[in-house]
Design a protein around this nucleic acid. Structure first.
Lengths: 337, 337
DNA sequence: CGCGCCGATGTTTACGTAAACATTCGTGCC
DNA sequence: GGCACGAATGTTTACGTAAACATCGGCGCG
């Protein structure tokens, strides 16, 4: 177990017959090294199996080429996919990702995560979470660390990247109205979710703009089970011919409830979801839903942080990634009344 | 933008009127500091907002309290959930997670990831991936970095943690046979997946042990769409009354195909899945499936790496996490023939 | 032909921490 | 009461890197 001391620049320098500073120059890609010397150094590196030590580099530079990602749960498709895109884009830019999962979504734990990331000397932070848990006044962030927030509400304090929830919901509702449905019922997500609230707001406004009455809101919690319960209620509403669910899981539950109660989709009731999870195309029937481009959200998060890191500026404002309605087989013209 | 130089131990020491070494002792929790002094130092830390610099600490100690996680995709529920558990457990043990996503699952890219993690001075590595991509002979791992592999085949070279695929598949098939089905069809995952292969092997062996003929294998790729295609074939097989799908997504596709062809589940055909994704309970009908405890897999991965890190030993062998059949409404007694 | 400039490389230093070693001081024991 | 010991704290040093500064040598130009 005797750890054979790591190969350092000094070792490489000795073998190559140059100073360690020249090795450093080669390592950082400085142009001030003549080709022949560079070759010699590279050869020595190869021979010794030299790996730069990022700890020493970080100590010297005060930066790690690392982005911290704080999130609460990976259980949702959206978070997973966003994280995956973040990781991929960061890797592409030569940055590593340090993941801080939060056991509970409280402000205290977010604070703790910021603290830990501060110690870890990350260059930037991406928070995948509702922003109401953040409060700039109490968060002791190192001043040179930049933050981008995904899946959140306001871009007042931080730079925010999000899917265009409002337009997605609008497309969904409009689609149903265009099919001749008199109005559209809505099953919403948890009350403390901004994404859920924005979708509900857009649903209400779209109905209002079309001069249609808004049926009472049904409350779910993103889970298929909660959608199932809502679906049972909807099945008993004789006037309900169109439902917009705030996500695909709840839509799945609604489909099952309607099926069990003998309501045919889309013949009797049309259903639209939100997210476009890969399985949505295989629901019974294949689900019409609003596609979110999580990969793009992740990419823009990384680009946003890196831009701020490079420029040393702090940005605010919201970047919206377009959503689009994917029409499948769960929606059809309203039944003749 | 003038970066106000970070607070260092020296600053704290000056304010507290002690040497920086004493600050270091307090910071590392050494017992050789008298309480009154410790209090003074802690007060100074609070006042200045001191944060230990993990880069310097890592440089000094040669270790980071960081675990690297290499994985190919987060798209699958299993990987996401496993990663989440890994992150949670690691955080609990005071370790950070550095995520390296692989764009392509080739040996070269795994090698590159190892190299990067080597530079990042991680203490251990967890690989969530098929192990056939690893080849100890060619992977230049720092000798003091420990590796644990999840979701893989052999524990010859590394310590492996996996769900008990074999027992899960056995339970699924046995359940169907016990219901009176003459035999069980199987829709398998991608050919290069060990998990998929093990489930298929166990399926075959369980049938053989029961003296039943094994129908031809149907090949899928984990996706619901591939399950749908397999389901279309199965719907045309008059003798097919029971199907075991290698994951829940494919089971979903099968359910849709059977539904479209007028086969009733479970009345005409019973279907069992694998994974127990949260939505499985809301499929039409609710899916009987094999539950995997991804959280436990993640936990054991972390525990395995940390144990090796602490002891400085290299372990091999496989740890199996139990799986269990969850019976819902997609399976029933075989129809009278 | 000599001077100055610039490109290539070497030397020094600092980053923040913790181990190793040094020092101080009080206490107990002979 | 002096001496040895050990607990508490201070001093020195090294970890590996890269910036800042120093040096060296060659080449162009007057």
């Amino acid at each position: 177990m005797a750890t054979p001391r790591r190969v350092s620049m000094a070792d490489v320098a000795r073998l190559a017959g140059v100073s360690s500073q020249t090795v450093s120059r080669v390592s950082t890609g400085s142009p001030d090294v003549v080709d022949s010397t560079r070759e010699q150094v590279l050869a020595a590196m190869r021979e010794l199996g030299y790996r730069p030590n990022s700890a020493a580099r970080a100590l010297k530079l005060g930066a790690f080429r690392t982005i911290g990602v704080i999130l609460f749960s990976l259980a949702s498709t959206g978070n997973s996919r966003t994280l995956e895109a973040i990781a991929a884009q960061a890797a592409h830019e030569g940055y590593a990702i340090t993941l801080i999962p939060l056991a509970v979504p409280t402000q205290d734990s977010v604070l703790g995560a910021f603290t830990r990331l501060g110690e870890l000397a990350v260059d930037g932070i991406i928070v995948i979470m509702e922003v109401h848990l953040l409060d700039a006044a109490t968060v002791p962030l190192p001043p040179n660390v930049q933050v981008v927030v995904a899946d959140s509400n306001g871009g007042d304090l931080y730079s925010v990247v999000d899917s265009d929830q409002v337009d997605g919901a609008r497309q969904a509702v409009t689609h149903l109205l265009d099919l001749g449905h008199r109005t559209v019922w809505h099953v919403t997500g948890p009350e403390d979710s901004f994404a859920s609230n924005r979708r509900a707001d857009a649903w209400r406004q779209t109905l209002a703009a079309a001069g249609r009455p808004a049926p009472p809101l049904l409350h779910g919690d993103w889970s298929a089970e909660s959608g199932y319960r809502a679906g049972q209620l909807l099945a008993d509403e004789p006037g309900c011919t169109a439902v917009f669910a705030a996500n695909d899981q709840m839509a799945l539950g609604i489909l099952r409830a309607l099926h069990e109660r003998g309501k045919r989709v889309p013949h009797d009731v049309s259903v639209v979801g939100f997210d476009d999870v890969p399985e949505a195309a295989s629901f019974i029937p294949p689900l019409t839903t609003v596609h979110q481009d999580f990969a793009e959200v992740g990419r823009r998060c990384v680009q946003g942080v890196l831009r701020q890191i490079e420029r040393g500026t702090h940005e605010t404002g919201t970047t919206l990634v377009p959503t689009r309605l994917v029409v499948r087989a769960s929606t059809a013209a309203a039944p003749p009344s």
